[in-house]
């Protein structure tokens, strides 16, 4: 059986699943809208946690948070379930498909058969939509892919029950209740306010201050850890920033797109101006990635290079600090 479901490619999986499920239910909500209302933008360094043998840095909110906040702010209700038993997880999925209800699933990337091998890491916060089943093959709409795809029930069970950090535990979710009209205006304001609060938080690992902390660490790495490890760490930062799903520039461009769309909804010209400013900041992040890649490309780099890219991050931090203070006042 196949549910009539329109697949739209998106940059990021979580926004994409939400946006596609909303569109399926008759609400034309773009990916940047979901991202902005859900306060997806962030910078956070998580000390002590190592990912792929390098420090963990994220440019976005915790997996699941974007949808949760989005739902609360626009007034929709979501049903979520996790399972211990893979059989029960499968039964619940099939029940929903039989009821013509496409559902979102959280899955691990490592065993996702249709992903390019090089991209299959143990990352457990990927999201996709299942919109049908033919024999024992599930029809999959993975928002980061250009078109729809399929997974056998064995393959699907494996990715739904991937282990490690953020293990999905068969996590299934779908909207159950919608208001007559979405409360977009207040939702946008709430989303922006929280992003400003987090980016300006007085904590050394979050937001603007987190960026400065990373800049400091980058200066220390070559001496403390050696060039090889320093390069690996630097590469990891660039990967987190530009990985599939960020839309480029560590989500800064998606956020700028959100501000542009919001300026029309709220009739607020200041947001359109700030959108342009965010685009420029996104370009600075891209420049940082280019210069960082020059360092880890030729392995015998000078320590100057590290100081240079750290300077770039400090400049970005200054600009973002001014930016989010202005944004806070603009709404």
């Amino acid at each position: 059986m196949e549910i009539k479901f329109t697949h739209h490619q998106s940059a990021h999986c979580e926004n994409g699943v939400v946006s596609n499920l909303m569109k399926h239910n008759g609400f034309n909500i773009s990916e940047p809208m979901v991202f902005g209302i859900g306060s997806g933008l962030l910078f956070c360094y998580i000390p002590l946690l190592m990912v792929n043998h390098a420090p963990a840095i994220t440019y976005r909110a915790m997996p699941g948070f974007i949808f949760k906040r989005f739902a609360k702010r626009v007034g929709i209700k979501i049903k979520r379930e996790k399972f211990k038993d893979p059989k029960k997880a499968k039964t619940r999925l099939d029940e929903n498909l039989n009821k013509n209800n496409p559902v979102g699933l959280q899955v691990g990337v490592y065993n996702l058969a249709y992903f390019p091998d090089e991209y299959r890491f143990h990352f457990n916060a990927h999201n996709l939509v299942v919109y049908g089943k033919q024999d024992d093959t599930y029809l999959i709409s993975d928002p980061v892919m250009e078109g729809v795809t399929t997974l056998t029930d064995k393959q699907l069970e494996k990715v739904r029950f991937a282990k490690g950090a953020f293990a999905p535990k068969g996590h299934i979710y779908y909207p159950t209740d919608f208001p007559k009209e979405l409360e977009l205006e207040s939702a946008i304001k709430k989303g922006i306010k929280q992003t400003c609060r987090e980016m300006l938080a007085p904590m050394p690992i979050v937001g603007v201050k987190g960026i400065r902390t990373i800049a400091k660490l980058i200066r220390k790495w070559p001496k403390k850890k050696g060039v090889k490890v320093a390069n690996h760490y630097l590469g990891q930062i660039v990967r987190m920033q530009e990985e599939i799903g960020t839309g480029g520039g560590g989500f800064r461009y998606i956020f700028a797109a959100f501000l542009q769309e919001s300026s029309k909804i709220l009739n607020n010209d200041k947001l359109a101006e700030l959108s342009k400013e965010m685009t420029q900041i996104g370009d600075l992040w891209r420049d940082f990635a280019v210069d960082a890649s020059r360092i880890y490309k030729n392995r015998a780099a000078k320590t100057d290079g590290y100081n240079d890219v750290a300077d770039q991050l400090d400049i970005i931090a200054d600009k973002e600090e001014i930016f989010f203070k202005k944004l806070k006042k603009a709404i």
Partner: peptide, 23 residues
């Protein structure tokens, strides 16, 4: 105006990924 464009890839991140795989 913001729009979306498909990209076949970008060298700085390809190098980062290649390095990670080499590692």
């Amino acid at each position: 105006e913001y729009t979306t464009v498909n990209s076949t890839g970008w060298d700085p991140k390809t190098i980062a990924l290649d390095n990670a795989i080499e590692e």
